[in-house]
Design a protein around this nucleic acid. Structure first.
Length: 282
DNA sequence: CTGGGGATGGGGCCC
DNA sequence: AGGGCCCCATCCCCA
């Protein structure tokens, strides 16, 4: 699922406590840690794991469109008893059944004398002329229902897959770009980034969210409600306060894995890697 | 070249 | 369903 990388936080973590920003941050960096197209940067706490977890990089949403990915989509179609969908990413398999491959993934089992069978009128035959043992049955990996013929099972699977295609594989596509979302709400939220319904009355600049506009208005009013507890500075944006708090920390989390120099922000590390230290390595 | 602030974008969660 | 908020991230600019 597209949201599989999210970990639902306990509500208590919503209490603002900037003294805990460092610890809360750790372990969540991977959620959305990399801009599309960026290489995984090294860092003191996640460099090794980033190599393991982020390589190969996750496919982008635009690339993922039309083809299920190993993480986001294939899993939804897999079945506990078999691997019809997971091993054969057939997006339209109800109409274009890849029989040779799919057949090899069925669980063929020997006599099941008590199980019901369908398609008794069919000759026992597998795909591509595979000679079926009269004593064998063909079992659906999903519901364990047994069929005496492959064609009976295939018919059963096709009808099931039609249902699955209309329920589990429902996506909402953005008409403005290639992105697709699992929920209508998520899509509506995304569409706001195209329509930009929130306009600043002072300068006319438009934003996708009201609170983005709120933050922008602070640039006009000069309001800075987020004060640093370590110094006298204040900020209009919480994220900027968070970044500022890094300057009070001696720990620089982001490390260049070429020269081992450390940086307080990922953007500084990226800039260092791309320009100063090892531009060819990126 | 580096450090840091300012501004902003975007997806998800909670109410 | 929508608003508010959280968190993460990036880009730009300046010292």
């Amino acid at each position: 699922m597209p949201r599989s990388f999210l970990v639902k936080k306990p509500s208590s973590t919503r209490v603002p406590n900037y003294g805990q920003l460092e610890t809360r941050r750790q372990g969540k960096e991977g959620r959305n840690g990399l801009r599309p197209g960026r290489t995984a940067p090294g860092s003191l706490w996640d460099h090794n794991s980033a190599i393991a977890c982020l390589s190969p990089p996750l496919p982008q949403s635009s690339e993922a469109k039309g083809e299920p990915t190993s993480i986001s989509q294939v899993g939804s179609g897999s079945s506990p008893g078999g691997s019809w969908d997971s091993a054969t990413p057939l997006r339209d398999n109800q109409n274009n059944l890849n029989l040779p491959l799919a057949f090899s993934l069925f669980q063929r089992r020997t006599p099941n004398l008590g199980s019901p069978a369908e398609g008794n009128g069919d000759k026992l035959q597998g795909p591509q002329g595979i000679a079926a043992d009269p004593l064998e049955t063909f079992e659906c990996p999903d519901c364990r229902k047994a069929y005496s013929t492959f064609s009976g099972l295939a018919r059963h699977r096709q009808q099931r897959c039609k249902l699955q295609a209309t329920t589990a594989r429902k996506y909402f596509n953005c008409k403005h770009c290639d992105k697709e979302y699992a929920s209508l709400g998520a899509l509506k939220m995304h569409i706001r980034t195209h329509t930009l319904p929130c306009m600043c009355k002072i300068c006319g600049k438009a934003f996708s969210r009201p609170w983005l506009l709120q933050g922008h208005i602070r640039t006009h009013t000069g309001e800075k409600p987020y004060a640093c507890s370590h110094c006298s500075r204040a900020f209009a944006d919480r994220s900027n306060l968070r970044a500022h708090l890094q300057t009070h920390s001696d720990i620089k989390k982001y490390q260049c894995h070429t020269c081992l120099k450390t940086f307080s922000r990922m953007s500084l590390l990226l800039r260092h890697e791309e320009t100063a230290c090892c531009p060819a390595a990126t």
